[in-house]
């Protein structure tokens, strides 16, 4: 038979897990017994207390605290609203998650993406290879290609327009950041004189959103600081 009162200690103090169906007076007795048992363990501890497993009115909560302080040497400093505990944990989780999304952490992918392949990633992604035309990279964070980006890249897939797409050779068919799409220029007729090829400058570039449009610019220190 599961215990009506379970004591769990955590960072802040103790978490009192109470049986939901028992009559309150009986429960109070059980609590008293439980704490009496554990008295030597807790001694003169100062702690916060939180309740779980049963909805208690303020009065009931006070009565429990009274019971504990009257019958043991434990000093209850405060009652932690159970929700506050959970809230704190949730907040931490979200912060971590948002950090991931804000692009402070990322994943690696080694290899070339070929036409028809799609790489879908929750966090930012760094690709050690090329993205061939017809291939697609989707990320909720940023995309960095240590190679040639010749296919499609979609950064900030959850609507984050602060994301960026960087590549050693920026030659994409389409770039999408957040909700903004940019496409490559329609092919310009290149006039190549016989024997002399145009020197196409290949430099690392980054694509960002400015004023609702996609801008592709060479990577300079100033630019990186402003992203």
């Amino acid at each position: 038979m599961p215990k009506p009162v379970v004591l769990k200690s955590n960072k802040y103090g103790i978490n009192l897990i109470l049986d939901n169906h028992m009559d309150f007076e009986e429960l109070l007795k059980c609590i008293m017994e439980r704490f009496k048992e554990a008295e030597s363990f807790f001694k003169n501890a100062k702690m916060a207390i939180s309740f779980e497993g049963r909805n208690l009115t303020q009065e009931e909560e006070f009565r429990i605290v009274e019971t504990i302080t009257d019958n043991t040497n434990i000093n209850i400093i405060c009652i932690l609203d159970n929700d506050a505990l959970k809230e704190e944990l949730i907040r931490q989780k979200i912060e971590h998650f948002e950090e991931e999304q804000a692009g402070k952490t990322g994943e690696f992918y080694k290899g070339t993406l070929r036409s028809g392949q799609v790489l879908d990633c929750e966090s930012s992604i760094i690709i050690l290879g090329d993205i061939n035309p017809g291939a697609k990279v989707i990320s909720k964070g940023n995309i960095v290609v240590l190679g040639a980006l010749k296919g499609n890249a979609y950064a900030g897939a959850n609507g984050n327009e602060q994301a960026f797409v960087a590549a050693l050779q920026m030659d994409p068919i389409q770039v999408k950041i957040g909700d903004v799409i940019g496409r490559s220029a329609d092919k310009v007729q290149s006039t190549k004189k016989r024997g002399r090829k145009q020197q196409i400058l290949i430099e690392p570039q980054v694509a960002i959103v400015k004023d609702g449009n996609i801008y592709i610019e060479p990577i300079t220190k100033g630019l990186l600081n402003n992203i």
Partner: peptide, 12 residues
């Protein structure tokens, strides 16, 4: 070349 690229991916 597009199609060959796709095929190479599928072969892999």
């Amino acid at each position: 070349i597009r199609d060959a690229d796709r095929i190479i991916g599928l072969l892999g």
